[in-house]
Amino acid sequence: AVASILIVLIIAPGLIMSRGFFSAPFTKRILPSNPVNELISAILPSVVLHALYLVIVQNWTDYQVDFPLLGNLLFSSSNPDRIKESFSNLSTFFVPIAIYHIVLWAVAYLLGLIGRVIIRFGSLDINLAYFRFNNKWHYIFSGEITRFPDVQRPPITRIDMRVVDMLVDTADGSIIYSGILQDYSLNNNAELDSLTLSHVFRRPLTEEVNGKNDAGE
């Protein structure tokens, strides 16, 4: 049990950093929705964060990380004296140890957040597909898609409203809804779930198909 708590503590910074990175509502992500992958992808950043943080703590504070003690706890030493020593050490230094982790978590969250801010404000996600967030609908509805280098269209910098015409399938046939897009929501796969319109006009398509539109469109 102690070893698994330790492993969680070791991986936590990477997980928290990705929480910070994806904390804005529009950055809705589709992670490989299995928790094991999430844990595995958190290991590398965690190790890097721990290593950097350790260098700082060992060199600039009076506290030292007790690696033999960590080893005892991780590999559940069979020597009862050493286990006792480890736990009494843990209780003596409980507050510094807790502060060590809380500070590291806060730093990890901030680093993730700063990373996102740099990508967004530096327009890295617009210019480089690698940095693009999985919420493609954000780029479409915000007009940012017109600034993508691979989209051949004059970039739009100012949008007052987004007018949407939608062809909707209903039991009574196809209906065109036109309105001003106010909001949208995504499902867990980052696909559109629903759209919220105001000032809606509704027009059945069937009439046109049945003769009124001579062009037959």
Partner: peptide
């Protein structure tokens, strides 16, 4: 016909296609 003053929520599963205009 017009549906005044209301917000309309349309489930995307019913949508066949979307035509989007950016208005400035």
């Amino acid at each position: 016909y017009k549906v005044p003053g209301a917000l309309m929520v349309i489930p995307y599963s019913k949508v066949v296609n979307i035509n989007l205009h950016y208005a400035a």
